[in-house]
Amino acid sequence: MVSTDAPRVALIQFPGSNCEWETKRAAEAAGIICDIFRWNRDPSLLAEYDGYIIGGGFSYQDRVRSGVIATKEPIVATMFEQVTEEGKPVLGICNGAQVLVEAGLIPGLNPGQVEMALAPNYPDPAGRLRDFCCRWVYLRHSCPQGRCELTSHMESDYVWPVPIAHGEGRFTTRTAGLIDRLRETDQIVFQYCDAQGNVENTPEINPNGAMANIAGLCNPEGNVLAMMPHPERASFVRQLPVELGASWGEKKREAWGSREAMAAPGPGRLVFDSLREALLPATVAG
């Protein structure tokens, strides 16, 4: 049970969202009050929340392209103000990441300007996955600990397994020098890597062909995180496949038959723990 004085997030539900309940469960397990907030409610009510989550799914059935129709809704305009003017944190997962990129919050060098795309997975003949891709990958936490508010509980270079499930997840840009600038400013939060943390641009490691193996980016202020993988699906030991091997696969094996051990945190919980901490100052201030 989450304490009633815990920080509160609004998890924005668009028509076509489909990950809201497991995301709510993961956030609540981290001690956050998480209200599912329909897109067509009075947007001014968003001001009552300490932060926001936009979860995965197919907002507006991915019509035109993923996330773009949602960005035109008044609720996103209000969230944009709360995030850029009040500094409230927002976590975008998968379709939520697509919304944040199309809303100009990520990479956010010029907030509101669309500086990147989450393009269709790279269709090359070398065997890179194309179209919709659903599997477990490894991520490296590539920025210094604390650079991004939403990964403050994660040590730098931490390597963790997490599932991806997307057809349009390739971070790309035609803005000259942008990727170099994102490296310099440590806005590249997560990169696809192998189980040892090696970041290489091969189809096995970088499943969608993202520039610089980018799986997650934050804005310059560090209060907005857009990530294509699903931390809510790696938030409990019970969600992890034994086939992962190594420490997390072993934990799952050891948890077999124990309800408590299965409910223990998985690696994705660190994202929600970080979100909770990012929400606390706003709660105190409010």
Partner: peptide, 16 residues
């Protein structure tokens, strides 16, 4: 042509 959150809808010029 999408240039900003409130400008353009049908094309993202970063891949289209």
């Amino acid at each position: 042509v999408t240039k900003a959150r409130d400008e353009g809808l049908l094309v993202n010029p970063h891949f289209q």
